[in-house]
Design a protein around this nucleic acid. Sequence first.
DNA 1: CAATAGGGATAGGGTTGC
DNA 2: TGCAACCCTATCCCTATT
Lengths: 128, 128
Amino acid sequence: MGAPKQKWTPEEEAALKAGIQKYGIGKWSTILKDQEFSTDLQSRSNVDLKDKWRNLKFMANGLGSRHRARVSSKSSQLIIKQEEDTTTSSMVVDTDMEVIGVTSIAASNELSQDVIFKKNIPRLDYVI
Amino acid sequence: MGAPKQKWTPEEEAALKAGIQKYGIGKWSTILKDQEFSTDLQSRSNVDLKDKWRNLKFMANGLGSRHRARVSSKSSQLIIKQEEDTTTSSMVVDTDMEVIGVTSIAASNELSQDVIFKKNIPRLDYVI
DNA sequence: CAATAGGGATAGGGTTGC
DNA sequence: TGCAACCCTATCCCTATT
C-alpha cells in the first residue's frame, strides 16, 4: 500500500469544492493544474478527486454511503447522474462554500436527472 | 443480526496463512479466488480474512487485542506497515505453518518498516 | 496515451455477542 | 468484561471506454 490511507483534510475538501465551482464536475485534472488549488491538493491525484467527490455526493444526499444507497428499494432509489458538458450545467453554492445543488440538462438523447443536496439538511423533497 | 458468530477453525486459519504466503498480505480477494484455499474458506469473505489477519497480528505482537493496544503510550507504539509489491517481500514460516516473520523492502523513495512477530513468544527485540 | 466513470477491494475505526 | 468476530464506509485500485 503506497500511503496507508490518507484522510482528507478540511482544507483539501474545501479546495476540491472550490475547484468544482470554478470548472465543474469531472474536470479533475483541470482542477489539479490550477495554481489556486494545486497547493492544497498537492498529494491528490485526479482519481482521488473523483472518488472524493463521489463520496461527498452520497454523504450529502442523506442516504449515507453509495453502497448503502444501492440497497434501497427501487421505488425510493436515487439515481444520480452528472452531465459532462459544463456549458449546460449550473451549480448552486451557499455562502459557506458548501455545494448545495447541481443541476444539469440532458443533451440529445441522453438521460439525465437533477441532483440536489445539502450537507446537513437533506432536501429530498426537491428530488424527482 | 448478522451471522451468528462463526468461530475460526484451525483449518480456516491454516488456509488463510497459506494464502498469505502465496500472495502476500492484503490480497484477500485473490486468496479467496484460489481453488487451493476456497474450499476451506468457503464461508468467509475477503473482509473476514482481513479481520482475522488483524487479530492474528495483534495476538502475535504480545500486546493483546488491538483495542487494548490503542491506549499504549506513543513511545512504545508499534507502527506496522506492509509493502504491496509481493515480488519485493519475503516471509518466514516455521514447520508448523505459523507465520513468524514478514520482511519487506522499501521501493524507490517510499518509507517502509519491517514487521516481525510470533504467535506465542513475542520477539519484539527483532523489531526496529 | 491521458483522463474519467464506475465497480470492486482494502484499511481501519467502530460495534456486538459470548 | 475482554476479546474474537463482525459491521461501516472513506479511501484506494482495476478496468473499460473515449
